[in-house]
Amino acid sequence: MFRISGGRRAALGVTGAALLALSLAGCGEKESTEQPGAGPSVTAAADSALAAKVPDAIKADGVIKVGTDSTYAPAEFLDADGKTVVGFDIELFNAVAQKLGLKAEYESAPFDAILPGVDSGKYEVGVSSFTINAERMKTVNMVSYFSAGTQWATKAGNPAKVDTENACGKKIAVQVGTVQLDDITARSKKCTDAGKPAITIDQYQAQSDATAAVVSGKNDAMLADSPVGAYAVKQSSGQLELLGDIYESAPYGYAVKKDQAAFAEVLKEAVTAVIADGTYQGALKKWGVEGGAITTPALNPTS
């Protein structure tokens, strides 16, 4: 997802996966057994020099309190137990925390509540596929660690004949608070400015619900972050397909409170360290998203 008030995303969490499985069963199709993320978790060795730089207020209890929206597979979603948050975002940030000699503890929250939670101090970091943009950097520090774009997805065969460049009159699903919501809103305005029907924009609190709405036919298509849309299509066993090319690629960022610039800088150094020791590439490869790898993280990048 890139998201905007958060900026991101799109994906299948447990709810979406369950709905999709039921749909597939009804069609007599076999669900894919290939599961990205299978196998042991990657781990990173602690770096004592970096650990020493973590502000005392952060490291006092030995944990980093993280807010995440666990509906966004394969980035962050609930495992089969319905409680454990997993995904490439989670695996990678676990390694970053380990590099600092700390443990990450995750609390699931609505996407658009995470950045306010970081700002208020409820969370020490927001890890939820947040696309870095100027609006977000007004309220939080952001450390880049991945790159993703937006891509559309629709039912296989595109029965609604959705044209990504002319979706006027179509019903499109997006997650609340995302960059994709801004994108489709602007596209709808172009439609009405040209005297064409507006796009019906259905907003869902969970990306998994947006995905399920396309599977069911309630919506004609959806917009989501590229790795999330690709994962949803792969997990649909042929019921969904990608539509058009990936566009507007931009970095994801870890969100840190505005007055915690020193901590944000240490996170940047920790990302650099896991890139250098190979843990970073291992985590992304495990989840099949190595195409979004970056080589150099940045604090509050402007472009």
Rank of each mutant, 00 (worst) to 15 (best):
G6V: 14
R9A: 13
R9N: 14
G13P: 05
T15Q: 13
A17I: 07
L19S: 12
L20A: 13
A21L: 12
C27N: 12
G28A: 03
K30W: 02
E31C: 06
S32H: 10
T33R: 14
P36C: 02
G37C: 03
S41W: 11
T43P: 00
A45Y: 09
S48G: 06
L50W: 00
P55E: 01
V63L: 06
K65L: 11
D69H: 15
S70T: 07
T71Q: 11
P74D: 03
F77N: 10
A80N: 13
T84H: 10
F88H: 10
I90A: 07
F93K: 05
F93G: 01
A97Q: 03
A97D: 02
A97E: 04
Q98E: 15
L100D: 02
G101E: 10
S108R: 14
A109L: 08
A109N: 11
A109Y: 09
P110G: 01
L115K: 09
L115D: 01
P116D: 07
P116N: 11
V118W: 02
G121H: 04
E124C: 03
G126A: 13
F130T: 05
I132K: 05
I132Y: 05
I132W: 00
N133I: 11
A134N: 12
E135K: 15
K138M: 08
Y145M: 10
S147W: 07
A148I: 05
G149N: 09
W152A: 11
T154F: 06
T154E: 06
A156F: 07
G157K: 08
N158H: 06
P159N: 10
E165F: 11
A167K: 05
A167P: 04
K170R: 11
V174P: 00
V176W: 03
T178H: 00
T178Y: 02
V179F: 13
D182N: 14
R187F: 07
S188M: 04
K189R: 14
C191R: 06
K196E: 12
P197Y: 02
P197R: 07
A198Y: 04
T200G: 09
I201R: 00
Q203T: 14
A206C: 08
Q207S: 15
D209W: 10
A210R: 02
A212I: 00
A212W: 00
A213Y: 05
A213D: 08
K218Y: 08
N219L: 06
N219C: 08
D220F: 05
D220S: 02
M222I: 07
V228R: 13
S236Q: 02
L240N: 06
L240D: 01
G244A: 01
E248P: 00
G253T: 01
A255Q: 03
K257H: 12
K258H: 10
K258D: 11
Q260M: 14
A262F: 04
A262K: 13
E265C: 06
V266A: 08
E269G: 09
A273D: 12
A273N: 12
T279F: 04
A283L: 00
W287M: 00
E290C: 07
E290W: 04
E290V: 09
G292C: 06
I294M: 13
A298D: 06
A298Q: 15
A298W: 04
N300G: 05
N300F: 10
T302C: 09
